[in-house]
């Protein structure tokens, strides 16, 4: 009985000392949104799209699991409007990985929350790059 009490008290003391030790460790949290996290180069955020490179091959549409990409072509086969629906996009990065021309890339912007559903649809056109 006394042995058990002694063991319990000892383990509590060791536990408290461990917690005390951790109190002096370096802080790991960031004061977000004032301080932004450092993101890696491969981070998959909001798309960056270069309409001049795009040949409207439709590969990104074919590999998209969420059917979030719509390409509108003009009569001579050039991209008129390239739109991504962020209401559907799951940021898998398939479009960027399989685009052989490098026109679709994943950017670093991840703050995409909005209260307007229509603003989730992003349209890239020649005029609005």
């Amino acid at each position: 009985m006394f042995k058990q009490i002694y063991k319990s008290i000892l383990s509590l003391i060791i536990g408290h000392l461990t917690v005390f030790k951790h109190a002096f460790k370096k802080r790991v949290t960031l004061e977000y949104p004032e301080v932004k996290p450092k993101l890696s180069d491969r981070f998959r955020g909001k798309h960056l799209f270069d309409i001049d490179k795009c040949k409207a091959c439709g590969m990104c549409q074919k590999v998209c699991p969420a059917n979030a990409i719509t390409i509108t072509k003009s009569e001579n086969g050039i991209v008129k409007c390239y739109s991504i629906d962020y209401g559907k996009c799951i940021f898998c990065g398939n479009c960027a990985y399989y685009c052989s021309l490098g026109s679709v890339k994943m950017g670093n912007d991840f703050e995409l929350a909005t209260d307007d559903k229509n603003s989730l649809k992003l349209n890239f056109t020649k005029e609005n790059k």
């Binding site: 951790h22 993101l39 799951i90 898998c92």
Partner: peptide, 25 residues
């Protein structure tokens, strides 16, 4: 807090390696 702090290191590695913290693809 300790577990999440240490797990965060792995998630940072995954983010650098794959591009995302949880949905790796």
């Amino acid at each position: 807090f300790y577990c999440f702090r240490d797990r965060e290191r792995i998630l940072h590695i995954f983010e650098a390696l794959t591009g995302q913290r949880m949905m790796y693809n």
